[in-house]
């Protein structure tokens, strides 16, 4: 029995255990400090739904063997462009949101296709190349944002050149999902629409993973020689995974933006991939294996930690930005841990 527990703990990994314990401690501390725990928990739910799809975007890449998709900013940019198109057309509410998604999908497919093609040529270095492709495209887009021909006043600076750095969604589709069928129970606000959408996306990905194509993808990631011997086109599987991941990245940022209330342009998407990677790793995924559960659990604890730590830390240590420091340490610490676990050593 003791062995079993030890084994269980070992498989979770010390870093994850530490983080989970930390989250529990923070929540207890919040209660002791008489902070509004219910409010904290509501916010935690919102943050989970808002970041969830971005984290979900990690699943196909990990399963297909292209590793942690640090190239997520590519999908994010496609999503933002879709969102801007919807605003440009002056569409509002749920309809505006849906159009944003629909507009972003062909873009993401195209981007994902070329990105996938690239990743197929750099097998073994996908993560490093992905990171810098992401960085390059974000910085190139910075120039593009300056010259893009959008006309809407909500998008452009009123004076001067280019698009705004933050674009408010108040008049368009701010919180369309969050407020959909929202209800309050035991002091907790439940963002029904947001959560429903997130779980719906999880379900779609779940179905995809159980399809012929999805299983071919899993076989590819699990053992590409096996996949080849089973008549699976390895490169095509990896390509599909990359495209799906990019699409999810695009949808993810739209969900994020409608909850946040703004689109952030220019350098904002630069580091977005890392937070998503950290969340799924915290949920229990590795560089080679991921489950839908890892997404849901991971995004809940990671976002919960970031959110709850801020007020608690502010009460206990009024000086210093402790919660931001913790975010950096936790986020990169868990990625580092996963990299060393993934091995490559002799």
């Amino acid at each position: 029995m003791k062995d079993k527990i030890m084994h269980g703990l070992k498989s979770i990994g010390i870093p994850r255990l530490t983080i989970i314990t930390l989250l529990i401690v923070i929540y207890i501390a919040a209660y002791v400090l008489k902070l509004d725990v219910a409010q904290l928990f509501s916010d935690n739910l919102v943050r989970m739904g808002m970041n969830g799809v971005l984290v979900l975007a990690m699943v196909p890449g990990i399963l297909a063997g292209t590793g942690l998709n640090f190239g997520l900013p590519l999908g994010v940019i496609c999503g933002i462009i879709g969102g801007l198109i919807s605003i440009e057309l002056n569409l509002t509410g749920l309809f505006g949101f849906v159009v944003a998604i629909v507009a972003s999908i062909p873009l993401s497919i195209l981007t994902g296709y070329y990105y996938g093609k690239l990743l197929n040529r750099v097998k073994g270095s996908e993560m490093m190349v992905g990171t810098y492709v992401g960085f390059s495209v974000v910085s190139l887009m910075c120039i593009a944002w300056l010259v893009m021909p959008f006309k809407s006043d909500a998008i452009r600076w009123p004076i001067g050149e280019g698009l705004r750095t933050t674009i408010a969604l108040t008049d368009y589709y701010d919180k369309v999902l969050n407020d959909f069928m929202k209800f309050r129970v035991a002091g907790i606000d439940v963002p029904t629409g947001l959560l429903l959408f997130f779980f719906f996306m999880c379900f779609i990905v779940f179905l995809f993973l159980k399809s012929k194509t999805g299983l071919a993808m899993i076989a590819t990631g699990s053992n590409n020689k096996f996949a080849k011997a089973s008549g699976i086109n390895v490169d095509k599987s990896r390509m599909i995974a990359t495209v799906v991941s990019t699409i999810l990245g695009a949808i993810g940022i739209l969900v994020y933006a409608q909850s946040y209330g703004f689109f952030q342009l220019y350098t904002a998407p630069l580091m977005m991939g890392f937070a998503a990677v950290a969340a799924i790793l915290l949920g229990g995924a590795s560089a080679h294996n991921a489950k839908i559960f890892h997404v849901i659990f991971g995004v809940f604890i990671f976002q919960g930690l970031l959110l709850a730590a801020l007020p608690v830390a502010n009460v206990i240590f009024p000086q210093g930005n402790l919660s931001e420091i913790m975010r950096v340490v936790v986020q990169y610490g868990i990625i580092l841990y996963a990299l060393t676990k993934a091995g490559g050593g002799q």
């Binding site: 640090f70 490093m128 930005n321 913790m326 950096v328 610490g333 580092l336 990299l339």
Partner: peptide
């Protein structure tokens, strides 16, 4: 650390830099 991630040294050294930056802060 890099000896534990042979073949992925660059991404590891980059992430390690970010991580160290957290500790530095």
């Amino acid at each position: 650390v890099l000896n534990k991630t042979i073949g992925q040294e660059m991404i590891t050294s980059m992430i390690l830099g970010f991580f160290a930056n957290g500790l530095y802060q």
